[in-house]
Amino acid sequence: MKPNIACFMCNWAFCQNNVELSSNVKVARVTCLGRVDPAIVLEAMANGFDAVLLVGCKPPDCHFVEGNLQAEYTAKVLKNLVSLIGLEPQRVKLLWSSPTDEKSFNHYAKEFSKEIETLGSSKLSLKEVDSKLKIDVLAAKNAASDFRLRVLLGREKDLTAYVNVYGEKMPEREFDELLDEIVFGEFIRHKIHLLTKTKPLSVKELAEASGMKPAIILKQIVNMRRKNMLALDHVEGTTPLYKALEVK
């Protein structure tokens, strides 16, 4: 069976071709690929698409000057989140188009379609999605909508391309490490938040449910209590149980 592919395409990309669509590729035209929110892409994946193709204009050409740069940051975070969910990061692909490109969009779509076919269909596209996976996807989506991640993405260019008031410039690698850390942190936090929403859980239970080390969970719980995302519900014996608080 052919994989279902969601394609977000910049209005200014591949304009010369009448994009003929094969039935398995659904295209949403957006003003600029920088417009595509990582949360939207995750929403598409949660709705059963096997893979996502992001089509933008080849740098350095962008009608909106930096839209493709922003799209690159988005794609970076998306790949990270998708692998945290437990899917292959190859399911998110960033594709550059240029007027001088000889090949048509269809060519690339087919190529990507084949790549995905070898990966098989996404676990999210099954009729009965694993409840754990459901929580993971939701956590990823929430993480992508989170304040911290969005601010950081918005500041990436500022931080890596220009010097700050102290004349310092952040090396891109350092920034990427920071971004990975934050993506991971946000993901775990939102996961804990979702898990503790229904009933109070202990660190041990949370560690089991998410497959993480208890130390990581505890660290995040401390953070979350400070951020008013989580509160101590009650203590069972010597084990404290936590429950999520409503965030705004």
Binding site: V30, C32, G34, R35, D37, H63, E66, T74, R150, G154
Partner: peptide
Amino acid sequence: CGICATRCP
């Protein structure tokens, strides 16, 4: 372009 809408925390 909508980049601000995408990034607004």
